[in-house]
């Protein structure tokens, strides 16, 4: 599903943001990507989303390879890889419903099909009743749920979440994490970057990939492909 092979990414500075990282996230697998701030978690997620190109090594997502992908293939890849940010990144001038519909419109889906699909997605994240609310009228947890619904719109193979609970209180975090588990149970792989040690401790069954200063220092699955 998602495979990193000896991936190094440097931005021209003296040290690489990530160095010689290899791991394989299988279909339907859930994993935490952890490490301190600056360990390289976001860089790894952006490499998988192909917002960054590896300086060396290869990232593979399904049939897409970082060494062969063409610019015109990027939208196709990004529809298959949902991305969730810590700061939600919703469009402020659009309602919850429109924010989700937007991810479907870009694919050219007919309008008649978009409405019912958006309703289904908002119900899935428990926000059907707040469809007409603008982001500023929603709590942090609710905004993150809208972002999750948007990320799921195109039925991604994998969901990348960058500190998705970082801005949320404990109750909202538990709600959002529960949502990820539900999504994962339906077959979508989830890679969640977090430095919340408590969350990781509470879910001992979830695979942990730990980074330190750009290097992979621990993988509970015991593999470094």
């Amino acid at each position: 599903m998602v495979q990193l092979r000896s991936v190094t990414k440097s931005f021209g500075g003296s040290s690489a943001a990530v160095q010689d990282i290899s791991f394989h996230l299988r279909k339907g697998e859930f994993a935490f990507l952890t490490g301190d701030s600056g360990a390289g978690k976001t860089t790894v997620l952006k490499l998988i989303h192909m917002l960054h190109r590896p300086t060396s090594g290869e990232v593979r997502v399904s049939r897409y390879s970082s060494s062969r992908i063409r610019r015109r293939d990027l939208p196709g890849l990004r529809r298959r890889v949902g991305y969730i940010f810590q700061d939600f990144r919703l469009l402020e001038n659009l309602t919850a419903e429109e924010n989700v519909a937007f991810a479907l419109e870009v694919t050219g889906m007919p309008r008649a099909k978009i409405g019912p699909r958006v309703q289904k997605l908002l119900s899935q994240v428990g926000l059907a009743a707040r469809a007409q609310a603008f982001p500023r009228e929603l709590s942090g947890g609710e905004q993150q749920r809208v972002a999750v619904a948007r990320a799921l719109a195109n039925e991604p193979l994998v969901l990348l979440a960058d500190e998705p609970t970082g801005n949320l209180d404990e109750r909202a975090s538990a709600g959002v994490f529960g949502l990820f588990q539900k999504i994962n149970a339906s077959g979508t792989s989830v890679l969640m970057a977090t430095h919340d040690a408590e969350l990781i401790r509470r879910h001992r069954d979830v695979r942990v990939i730990e980074l330190e200063q750009g290097r992979l220092v621990f993988d509970s699955a015991g593999e470094t492909e």
């Binding site: 939208p75 990004r78 529809r79 990144r89 919703l90 937007f102 870009v106 948007r150 990320a151 195109n154």
Partner: peptide, 12 residues
């Protein structure tokens, strides 16, 4: 910001 979000969700 809007353009970056569009790219993230797979807009051409």
């Amino acid at each position: 910001r809007e353009i970056a979000i569009m790219q993230t969700v797979g807009a051409t």
